[in-house]
Each structure stands twice: as C-alpha cells, then as structure tokens.
Design a protein around this nucleic acid. Structure first.
Length: 280
DNA sequence: CCGACGTCCTGCTAGC
DNA sequence: TGCTAGCAGGACGTCG
C-alpha cells in the first residue's frame, strides 16, 4: 500500500529528525520479517550516525556515517516513524532504535510483516543492488519509454506494477494514472500508440506529484514519519470507488482483477485504443 | 526469455 | 450474535 508518494513523505519527514543522530540502543521483537533481522547487526550499528535519508522506488535508504546503510521496505502495512521514547510501544513494533540522548526512537512497525529492515554494510553496493531490480524513477523515464511498453505482451496495469519498468508505482497509483491518461488497464502494451505512452508518462508524474503534495494516501495503516496520516485517499478518482460515479462522466466505476490485483477504472473514459497497424 | 501464478501475513468484514 | 471464509497486495520464487 505504501507506494512512491507515501515513501517519499516518510523520507521527507524523517530527514530533518534523523540526520546527524547517533544510534544508542537497538531493541527488536521476535517476529520474523520478510528478510529476518540479524542479531549480529546490532553491535555493528550502535554508535553509528545517520548521514542521509533517501528513497529509491519504494525503498527507504538510511545512509550511515563511514559506510553502510539501513534498507527499509514498508511492504503493505509498514510504518517507519520517530516517536518519543516515552510514548507507548504499539503492538507489531519489530525494531526500535533509541537515538542519542534517549528521548527519541526510530521505530519500525508492520502488522502484516511484508516489509523489512536490513543492514547493508558495504557502501555503494546498495545503489548497484537497487539499480539491478528497479527501473527509472517516473521523472527519469526515458524518451523511448514507448519501446519498453510496446515490446510487452502484458496489459498496461501489469506493466505499471513492474518495478523494472518504472520504480515506485503500485496498485493505487497504477489505477489512478491510467484514469488520468484515459487508458484502459486492459490495454495491451504491444498495441499501445506512442502518443498514448507519452500521455501515460505525464499522467503518472502528475498523479504522483499531487499525491506527494497531499502527503500520500492512508487506506488503513499508512502514516508518515511523524505518525501523521495522508490525505490523498480523499482525491481518488477510481481506486476503491467501484459502483460510484466516474468524476468525469458520472457513469459507474467498474472493477476487475488484473495481474492478480484489484483494478478500478471507468469503461467510458478509459477505452482500449488500438494502434492503427493492428486490429484488436 | 517471458509471463503467470502461488506464497507470505494479519485484520477486517460480508454473509450465513 | 457469533463464526468463518475471503479479501487486501509488494516482492520474490517457481513453473510452464
């Protein structure tokens, strides 16, 4: 559920609170995260300082002084927050790092445990690792982005969910972007016209920027780095609006299952458009 | 090589 | 009113 706008909000919230801070103590729960926390990491991390907080796709990178990083993925229900050490520890809190002075803690909470917190000791390697599994950020999509789409036999919905094609888009923003572009989620990549691909690229950027401005969307669990909920769920055009009127044409929003995910769209505003050279 | 699909996990809710 | 089946989905492994 946390996608690029939510992760970006967490990063922006944490950056001023975390940079320069030292890790004084680490406590962990027993529950196993997607990538299990290693006990031996703790003595390597205590005493280190945070140098920078950044994002790549849906991944949060906490750069440490000297070398190494803490890599965080929020999965579906992950929360990475700075909280007072005196505030109650909520259930499903798996990692707590007490910061210099003992007043504040960096906390990782994750009900469904689809996410992870891991230590990556070698500098630089983290960027190579992420470059291996992630495509460009939406703003860096290449001018030949139509090439990437048109060589795929998959539908646009599945293509947008593929992190190697574009990093950071998930189920919500895939649906919202396709609506913004007026393209059917069922449209096959191979049939997509260059002009439609270009419009989709603009739509993704536009939707993500609006969502970041609203501090992301809170469906259930998502909160920013200071514990605040997002506001973009109030601006959804199609996601989760099955049966409700399309904001553009008032016809009911429909839903179906694509690429194993619930997909929301307006059949009238998002027709399948086929390239002139080939018939449906 | 590519794409489809199953798996992990818990909490909420629709339906009986 | 109480129970349970089904659903939510990001990343990754497996299979055809």
């Amino acid at each position: 559920m946390p996608e690029l706008p939510e992760v970006e909000t967490v990063v922006r919230d944490l950056r001023p609170m975390l940079c320069g801070q030292r890790i004084d103590r680490i406590q962990t729960g027993r529950a196993r995260l997607r990538r299990p926390w290693q006990k031996r990491w703790e003595k390597l991390l205590v005493g280190r300082r945070f140098n920078a907080v950044r994002r790549r796709g849906k991944w949060i990178i906490l750069d440490l002084d000297e070398s190494g990083h803490i890599l965080v993925h929020l999965g579906m229900t992950g929360q990475l927050t700075i909280a007072s050490a005196r505030s109650p520890r909520l259930n499903h809190t798996h990692v707590l790092m007490t910061l210099e002075g003992g007043d504040a803690q960096l906390r990782y909470r994750d009900v469904r445990r689809f996410g992870s917190v891991e230590f990556w000791p070698i500098s630089q390697a983290i960027d190579d690792l992420l470059a291996e599994k992630l495509g460009p950020e939406p703003w860096e999509l290449p001018s030949d982005w139509h090439q990437a789409i048109s060589k795929s036999a998959r539908c646009l919905k599945a293509i947008l969910l593929d992190q190697r094609v574009v990093a950071g888009v998930g189920n919500i923003y895939a649906d919202e972007s396709l609506f913004e572009a007026g393209l059917s989620p069922e449209q096959l990549g191979v049939h997509t016209r260059p002009a439609d691909a270009a419009r989709l690229r603009e739509a993704i950027i536009c939707v993500l920027e609006r969502a970041i401005a609203a501090r992301g969307a809170t469906i259930r669990d998502y909160v920013g780095g200071s514990g605040l909920q997002g506001g973009y769920q109030n601006e959804f055009q199609v996601y989760g609006r099955t049966g409700q009127p399309c904001p553009r044409c008032t016809r009911p929003i429909e839903s179906l299952r694509l690429a194993g995910r619930s997909t929301h769209y307006c059949p009238a505003c998002q027709p399948v458009r086929v390239r002139a050279s080939g018939r449906k």
